[in-house]
Write a protein that binds this DNA or RNA. Sequence first.
DNA 1: ATGAAAGCGCTAACAT
DNA 2: ATGTTAGCGCTTTCAT
Lengths: 363, 363
Amino acid sequence: MGNNMRAFRRCQAVGSDAGGGHRHATSQVSNVGDVAKRAGVSVMTVSRFFNDPSKLADDTYQRVKHAVDELRYVPNASARSLTRGRSDTLALVVADVGHPFFMSVARGVEDETQAAGYTLFLGNSNETLAREKRYLQALIGRRVDGVILAPTHGKRHNVGLLKRHDVPTVLIDRRLPNHELDVVRGDTFQGGRLLTEHLLAEGYADIVFVGGYPGVSSLVDRLGGYERTMREAGLEPRSVLGSYHQTSGERIVKAMIADARNGSTSLPEAIIAANNMVALGALLTLRRHGLRVPDDIAVAGFDDFEIASQLDPFLTVVRQPAYDVGREAARLLLDRIQDSGRPREEKVLPVDLVVRRSTRRPR
Amino acid sequence: MGNNMRAFRRCQAVGSDAGGGHRHATSQVSNVGDVAKRAGVSVMTVSRFFNDPSKLADDTYQRVKHAVDELRYVPNASARSLTRGRSDTLALVVADVGHPFFMSVARGVEDETQAAGYTLFLGNSNETLAREKRYLQALIGRRVDGVILAPTHGKRHNVGLLKRHDVPTVLIDRRLPNHELDVVRGDTFQGGRLLTEHLLAEGYADIVFVGGYPGVSSLVDRLGGYERTMREAGLEPRSVLGSYHQTSGERIVKAMIADARNGSTSLPEAIIAANNMVALGALLTLRRHGLRVPDDIAVAGFDDFEIASQLDPFLTVVRQPAYDVGREAARLLLDRIQDSGRPREEKVLPVDLVVRRSTRRPR
DNA sequence: ATGAAAGCGCTAACAT
DNA sequence: ATGTTAGCGCTTTCAT
């Protein structure tokens, strides 16, 4: 491992720099042999230059370095990983690249893995099982050294593939049944509890939970925290699930309003949205129908809007430490790569209730 | 003997297992040979199963399929790319994963490349030349079939590396001097012009341009559009550059306010921010100092806030078609991969002025 | 400290 | 329709 990392760092030092001037109109990709010839050494010496430079005589080292620079030689990682069985590459596969939460996670993962000398590739399953599988196969085929995965939301999952191929794996944000993988996630059960307690304290009683993929653990936990707290207060929980997308919030709230207007079910006093995108959909739909938040109905959600909240801190939310989820996951993965036998860990990071105007009780 | 070797290597790749209860005591990564043996065919037949299944007899196909499924065999992409010289993999390297603009670009690229059967890996240079180089070397080493790059902002760049290794490349968002690469970008010169014309039409005259990396082409264009339009109106342009980050907007505006308060320079009537993050910084700083937008000063920017603008359409912006930039870039890249000799293209996509409250002239 | 040879898992180019 | 052979570019092992 230490060796490996040193080699990788060498790689970086290598190669020339910016700028246009290339000498051959028909540039040819070179290999160890070309470098060896140019430096007047054997291919093994060139190999050692990258993998264990301390074994080279100073003079030899300089000659090889020269040849490498001149040719702007970059070792063929495929060939390398073919012989070594390892690639110095890690991957993060998220369920939704566009989601701010996963972006922050990605930053955390990147900062940590770069520091450890790995290259990180990011993949996006787009909440689609088939697409996730495709990514994982590409990754497995490339012999990535480890994967951090936010699994898609369905009943089925692809972690068996990773296990089958002995790929060290850490799950983030979402637990999965029956596996022995490390997990890092925010304490969203507690989040559901905090949000509900806050609303109850504000005097709301008719609180409904809206949106989220049924079955996915992050939703189950959030919903669970809400339901438990409601029941402890002697109230009946009520929920309408869907997806984590904005449209889900829109559709569900629209239906609620319709129900209220035709008298079948009264509008709740408060809504807890499954995440920020659902909250956005809910907010917009309420507004579109002339309902004011919080005067006519309160709204709260999970995950903050990074930018909107700075511009106008309006929505009450439970904030998850997304960046730290990424960092912790990366750390766990690096540990697991070094010691595949270590006991499984599940890191549950604390969440944070941020009370804002959208749940302020009108008097 | 070959077998012994293989076993040995596996041990290394996999690491020692702490003896405990694993489902597969011999969790072995299999190869074409294993599949061939199990299916009772030659390795070439297995290879053809993946590369040209139509060449197999129905019966043979089923036998191989069975073996592949049973072993959950995933071909070794490294070996594959080693023989074929390509990898069916494309990469997108952006300057900032966190930036909403690049996220939309990523989605566009993904949708297009997935449809074409490629796997896409996303990298993040974080506006750092060294980190970009590192990514590109990893990509080159892996023999990716093409790269879409939003180059970092400095004077120097790494595209020579890509050219040297014959990697088909498309630049997005930012032009570079002296290269023959395809480029896809928004027409931000026109954007600068539209924003300035709008402010002038609203009756503002003392307009200042704020933020952005000096030298990076997207900034040069935006600034250019602003300056040209100002001069055509007989006004003197004024700008204070910096970076594309929120802190840049904060710092510059803070200094402006200080200058205005100690009387050295009066506060401008309007600010054009280099992008949305800078605009955010400007807005927050103005507010923090008790200045109202647009009553005391108008603010406009480039790139929209996807979410904040829905919640509260406040900031006047020029919107770039980020998703389309991604799609077009992907298309161009696929074309170039097929025909490396085709003439260079520079696609400049139209931008869109969205007038909102932040520039409404107080009466 | 350096080199020669073998082989990682796969596919292109020929067989059959 | 299927099989055989010869590498792809690299690192491992075993010499020197």
